[in-house]
Nucleic acid binder design. Sequence first.
DNA 1: GGGGAAGCTA
DNA 2: ACGTAGCTTCCCCT
Length: 879
Amino acid sequence: MILKNKLILIDGNNVAFRAFFALPLLNTDKGIYTNAIYGFATMLMKILETEKPTHVLVAFDAGKKTFRHETYTEYKGGRQKTPPELSEQFPLILELLTKFGIKHYQVENYEADDIIGTLAEKAGQESWDVKVVTGDKDFLQLANDQVEIALIRKGISDVENYKPADVQERYGIDPGRIIDLKGLMGDSSDNIPGVPGVGEKTAIKLLKQFGTIEGVYESIDDVSGKKLKEKLIDHHEQALMSKKLATIDRKAPVTLSLEDCQYTFEVTSELIHLFKELEFQSLLDRIGAEETIDQNAQDEVFDFQTLSEITEDHLESPSSLIVEVTDSNYHYGDIHGIGLSNKTGSYFIPIKTALSSEVFRAWLEDEKAEKVVFDGKEATVALSWREVHLKGIMFDIQLASYLIDPSETNDDLAAISKRNNLSYVYSDEAFYGKGAKHRIPEDEELGGHLARKAGACLELLPLLQKKLDENQQTSLFNELELPLSLVLAEMERMGVKTSQETLEQMGEELTRKLTEIEHDIYEMVGTTFNLNSPKQLGEILFEKLQLPVIKKTKTGYSTSADVLEKLAPQHEMIPKLLDYRQLGKLKSTYIEGLLKVIHPKTGRIHTRYNQTLTQTGRLSSIDPNLQNIPIRLEEGRKIRKAFLPSKEDWVIFSADYSQIELRVLAHIAQDEQLIKAFENGMDIHTKTAMDVFGVKEEDVTSVMRRHAKAVNFGIVYGISDYGLSQSLGITRKEAGQFIEAYLDSFPGVKKYMEDVVKKAKEDGFVTTLLQRRRYLPDIKSRNFNRRSFAERTAMNTPIQGTAADIIKQAMVQMSERLVEEKLTTNMLLQVHDELIFEVPENEIDTLKRIVPDVMENAVKLDVPLKVEYAYGPTWYDAK
DNA sequence: GGGGAAGCTA
DNA sequence: ACGTAGCTTCCCCT
């Protein structure tokens, strides 16, 4: 069988522009912008994978002037200049194509359109399959039985394929009439005038009636509508010229033959090299290039010694210390070796040697022996499970790196090293392999890796110290984050006692209810299907039952709770479905999920806090996430009954900041109104309602208060009229008026919002009260969505981040205070604005005094902080 | 194994 | 086409 040739023609300029504007302004360590290149490569790979072409060509526009300018000097006039951040990416896009083995081509005086038109025609005549990839609708004129147009819709990888029938379906005209359509309606992006006042709808109507522009003018008397007729007559010439401009030349002087475009799929080492240079890790994964150990790293000789006996001489201060854990969850993993580095050298210590050495154990526990670590919390917890109490951590590379720039990859020592021009460390992923390929090598090989890691930490110490200092983050590091990491280590190691029986009982009840609901639904609908599949559910609701489609997702119908609520009156199964969703969530995530992570030896759940992840400075919690245990609905809230104190007659004691974010806002914005309201102990939502709606306190209705509350949330999140309208179910205009009224009532807030965005534009970053930092490169983006998001982030991050600073400070002080007061109380959990303790009965009164004291005075603000507390036999009762 | 939808928290 | 910050589960495709 002879395989049919398949030619892909790509509109290079168009794809590059789209990629550039669709993606954030990515750049490599060396400061090369890569977003357009990345987007181009992503699109290319997708096309090559799905289409498997035999021939490929990427066509580019040549120069500024084309033959179309002879027809109309204003052609493509008024276009914004190509941003330099994009133009500098073009040479690399060409290099990328070369390394893919793909031909690129341009012709003086002609546009990419004409090259593509000419070659598409040629290939079509030879009965090849042709596909044109572009974002420009003009190309639809080329569609025919051989030529299909792939229109990029939004983003970079979302395409819509047009065969002639699809053009007919979408526009109601044949592909050949697209030029008439453009001739009538014009095209603002190419500055093609068309006929003023004629848009897509009118143009299509005319073409359906008369066929072509020429047809329209031949029968101009039959055109209905006096105004329209006049406009057409007045702009006769212009319409014909516009049509000419929109016509793709299929006879352009293309010297390239079809065979010149031959393409064979091949992953070359050159391509891999380029991807590495451009830091396209995800694309490397996609072409199946196993992350190999960096050539540079491998080449660099690294001297180290494997110790079979440890003496004091090996333990200089400071030393970097790597405690390597086998499992990603350090509560469960084994330690498989120790790396050590100081001015006497770098060492690998096999784990047996380490744990059996009295000298080494004593050194680990010696507060005065200074250690530099990478993730001290991990090392502390892992050793603590083995009854070794690590002391003397003076610096944590991971934490420091996170404070310097939270947006960078901070969980990979190799990446941090690279950013600081150290190249001999292997990344853990490359060294151990990932997924099914994960393996832990024998000591001989392992030793080098750990010694290199230790060596890098020691070298990074002064570099990161200097950066912290330049950022004025030294005290944030020393006084807050480093001590906090040790507090968190204790909390994680302690864990929280969880009743398996309680969870199991709740699980059984949920299973019963779920089975019943499931059957009811099947009966009502008359068929069985997977209730958990949004796809199957969508088909049932919107096709079988013909319910109205309220919202769509990228992949199909939306079946989210807000959609279902709107549909509830239309079908009796919907409320059942909502119940099913709610209970199903409880069962799978919370009952089964939590049962899986109760530690078999301690009977407790040991979460891990990620201290180096969030962009705002908050903690996050994983495996399990104990920061999203249900509370809003009673059924879910009952899950909290499973969380208990360790011992009899102890209680769970919970304390939370009241309105911390609005208080922080009042302080940062120095808004007199808001500060006064908090000083007077007012209900802040009521106060907001009074000001926004201009009523007296006693006249604030519950609806007004609810709206005011939503406005307050909106303010904290970086408000938009759209967002507020969504959350309140009001129009965008009304939401806009609420916001305006709010900002008039709180002028300090208004000024803050303006100033913080301005400052972010100047500095490129925003900061919190304690000098935490977040960079916002998108704040200068030309893409409205990206820029708006960055602006909201600029408003929100100092607020959310300062609140995080405050509770972190409180945790450090609370931990010290518990020691000072010789209490046996344990701090167990942190949930962003809330601390949870387990407390023996005889310490409750003390805690009632010191917890609010510490939390309210952790940081001095110009507004009072307020803490509320509660306690009871389970977490559920601490309300 | 990964991406998307959905839903839980502050 | 869109309120801030997260994590886990499920489906479904590769």
